[in-house]
């Protein structure tokens, strides 16, 4: 997966684009990206937040249906 592009989408809050085009769900949350990040971006936290938000959005949609 292309983590440098993924994190741009996550920073902008575009979780659905990240899921469709940048393989958000391929992440197994090992944390290596945050370990080596020169700029110390909390990448793993962004990813976990994105997954959480997507689940929350989906469950809200089913409730509203």
């Amino acid at each position: 997966m292309q983590i440098n592009l993924l994190v741009r989408y996550l920073e902008a809050g575009k979780y659905e684009d990240a899921e469709e085009s940048y393989d958000l769900h391929s992440c197994i949350e090992c944390g290596l990206c945050s370990y080596v990040c020169v700029s110390k971006i909390p990448i793993l936290q962004y990813i976990m937040l994105a997954k959480h938000e997507l689940v929350r959005m989906r469950s809200m949609e089913t409730v509203n249906d």
Binding site: C30, G31, Y35, C37, S39, K40, L44
Partner: peptide
């Protein structure tokens, strides 16, 4: 806490 329990210490300053 979550996975990266440590950081490898690379910094932008070092690269510069």
């Amino acid at each position: 806490s979550f996975a990266p329990f440590w950081h490898n210490g690379s910094r932008v300053t070092d690269r510069s």
